[in-house]
Amino acid sequence: MDNNILIKTEGLSKIYQMESAQVIALKDINLEIKHNEYVAIMGPSGSGKTTLMSILGCLDTPSSGSFYLDGVDVSSLDDNQLAEIRNKKIGFVFQTFNLLPRANCIKNVELPLIYSGVAKEERYGKAVKALEDVGLGDRMTHKPTELSGGQRQRVAVARALVNNPSLIFADEPTGNLDTKTGEEIMKLFAELWKKGNSIILVTHEEDIARHAHRIIKLRDGVVIDDFRNPNPVIA
């Protein structure tokens, strides 16, 4: 397999078994995403984009088909192995930030490192560095409730980056932010991409998707469009 390929899916499907009926969330998805790509997955609600992100983010497993992440067949892994992959290879940024409210910024950013067993001093150093990288060097001991929305999302980005993942997922990262703050966050993603990170953006907003270099459109669980963005927005 091509070493440069980060994600490869073959015939990926997800079917939810409801009481009376089957709901097909994803049908026969075949994708290839290379390292250091900046991809937006777009679609209206119910299109299956969240399900796709859950599977690509190793939070969920497909009903059928295979999914290779960094050359590893992820669809055959058990819960614990998936947890390890999430920990080491994937960073998440959520619409609702999903920070631990009682923990301060450093503790929040340290969390993935704790789960990978990094020693205390090293953990602290990495967390500080990650927070400085997103411009929050002066807010490290604040709790999320003491920060603005944009700052919270920066903490989340720092947390996503701290373990040096292969891939960053951003699920509607600007959904809870005003336009200006949203733009700042998008600028941050652009910088990360320039530094060599791979980014998958999940959104239903055209404006946001236009920052990406490749756009994949979903509808009713099927890829209906997959094209290069000829001139991505430079934030």
């Binding site: 939070l59 819960d79 614990n80 947890a83 920990n87 080491k88 969390l111 993935p112 789960y115």
Partner: peptide, 12 residues
């Protein structure tokens, strides 16, 4: 959920 997403295993 957050902890699990960040790599906490079941036993954690």
């Amino acid at each position: 959920g957050i902890r699990k997403a960040l790599g906490a295993k079941k036993r954690t």
